[in-house]
Design a protein around this nucleic acid. Structure first.
Length: 85
DNA sequence: TAGTTGACCGGAA
DNA sequence: ATTCCGGCCAACT
């Protein structure tokens, strides 16, 4: 039985290049639509290189936080991948 | 077991 | 548009 956390990691790992998902969408896909906050909490403590956490942004359209360079770096990465204009 | 924390969300002021 | 507040959930202490 996979836990919510495992599914979240799996979901984020499956996000294709140039694509973006909101924390809420990820939470929903993982099985708990209201766990958007928990998703961020999980990413923060489980940042594997297989998981492109920079492809996950907030529902407001804001970039959100990032542990490898902050919001700035996150934005740059998304731009490079073409996910963000 | 209970309390605190935070890469969030949505509504209200 | 910006700031504030309550709710929500998993991890940490």
């Amino acid at each position: 039985m996979k836990t919510f956390t495992d599914r979240v990691k799996d979901t984020v790992r499956k996000i294709p290049k140039g694509k973006i998902m909101t924390y809420k969408e990820v939470a929903k896909r993982a099985g708990n639509a209201s766990a958007s906050r928990a998703v961020g909490s999980i990413m923060k403590k489980n940042y594997e290189l297989d998981i492109p956490c920079h492809r996950v942004i907030r529902s407001d359209g804001k970039i959100g936080e990032y542990n490898r360079g902050g919001t700035k770096q996150k934005t740059i990465l998304l731009k490079k991948e073409g996910a963000l204009k």
